[in-house]
């Protein structure tokens, strides 16, 4: 069975400063999950930690379960078989992620040799097929080209081809279109959605752009200051955002048509990870904050079908969940 991947109470600290405060996320086979948040919210760190890609000074705890095995307990030698094979990741800047000294064929071939055991002519044929798949024109000839001979959009296509080379069960795309122009962004998102449908792999799309995420994903998790504050199916989140931060994010977005309205900006700034406020991290910027918000840390609790939110004042927050959250926080602190 193509495995689902589950993050359980994943926490990360750098030099004693906790930047990720217990992330719980599950991605089923073939699912597309969007992870939205502003810079410093921990959306990239979550996946770098899950794949063991953070520097040694980072302290990671919790579990990352893939087929009943915890990736965090795995030795590096085993992990390399999973990274690029079962789980692939692509990044924002394709030019710095590709090796400028090697041809595209060599770079795609490396994955093919390592994870699929191909060699010689088989590598060439498969690399050509992959370049065709990601829409690089004249793939046969372009195999011997270097990254600088491609445009930004084409380099991102090459990155996607490399990621697909290991036939991953899960592709984590970290801001894959942020460095690209709008019309090229549309092409790349389309390509991601298409390959996801064709290969049946699961897709995690990390982005700061709610628009980008809603185009490709089924489910969205909103992150703020190292925590998931809301998780819901895309349509549900846009129709009924429950967390004041999610509501604020949507109010901050200008519309492209219809009457113009003043943007409802969220006041203040994202708190620094080393000096988080007590209680809910969003409370100092929240228009609905009550006394309890400055004292208790809310944890994700279900408020409807597949919809959960971490907020004390949001409607229908069961008090049991709050108690549970406090117990859990204490457990994490201990």
């Amino acid at each position: 069975m193509r495995g689902s991947i589950t993050l359980e109470e994943l926490t990360v600290s750098f030099n004693g400063v906790r930047v990720l405060h217990g992330i719980d996320l599950a991605i089923g086979p073939g699912e597309t999950l969007g992870l939205v948040g502003e810079s410093g919210s921990g959306k990239s760190v979550t996946w770098l930690a899950a794949l063991g890609l953070l520097p040694p000074k980072a302290k990671v705890s919790g579990r990352v379960m893939l087929n009943d095995r915890n990736l965090l307990d795995m030795p590096d030698s085993k992990l390399t078989g999973i990274r690029g094979g079962r789980i692939a990741m692509i990044f924002q800047d394709p030019v710095s992620a590709l090796n400028p000294m090697l041809t595209v064929k060599r770079q795609i071939g490396e994955t093919l040799a390592l994870h699929r055991g191909l060699s010689g002519a088989a590598i060439k044929a498969e690399a050509k097929r992959l370049l065709d798949l990601v829409g690089i024109p004249d793939a046969e000839r372009r195999l011997n080209a270097y990254p600088h001979e491609f445009s930004g959009g084409q380099n991102q296509r090459v990155m996607i081809a490399m990621a697909l080379a290991g036939q991953p069960d899960l592709l984590v795309a970290d801001e894959p279109t942020t460095a690209l122009d709008v019309t090229i962004q549309a092409q790349i998102l389309d390509l991601l959605a298409l390959t996801q449908r064709e290969t049946g792999m699961a897709l995690v799309l990390i982005s700061h752009d709610l628009g980008v995420v809603s185009q490709v994903c089924d489910r969205v998790a909103v992150m703020y200051a190292g925590r998931i504050v809301e998780e819901a199916p895309v349509e549900r989140l846009f129709e009924h955002p429950a967390h004041p931060y999610s509501q604020g994010l949507m109010g901050s977005l200008p519309a492209i048509d219809g009457p113009r309205r003043r943007l409802t900006a969220i006041g203040g700034t994202v708190p620094d990870a080393s000096s988080l406020p007590a209680g809910c991290s969003f409370a100092p910027r929240c228009a609905f904050a009550e006394t309890q918000c400055h004292e208790q840390i809310p944890l994700l609790a279900g408020i409807g079908r597949d919809h959960s939110v971490a907020c004390l004042v949001s409607e229908a927050q069961p008090s049991a969940a709050i108690r549970y959250s406090r117990q859990k926080e204490q457990r994490i602190e201990a």
């Binding site: 709008v182 019309t183 962004q185 549309a186 092409q187 998102l189 389309d190 959605a193 752009d209 709610l210 628009g211 980008v212 809603s214 185009q215 490709v216 895309v234 349509e235 846009f238 129709e239 949507m250 977005l253 492209i256």
Partner: peptide, 19 residues
């Protein structure tokens, strides 16, 4: 094409002008 490519929150891909 530009207007069509600009992602709108809450809407899926599809029916877009793809340059």
């Amino acid at each position: 094409a530009l207007v069509s490519a600009a992602p709108v929150p809450g809407t899926k891909l599809g029916g877009r002008i793809m340059l």
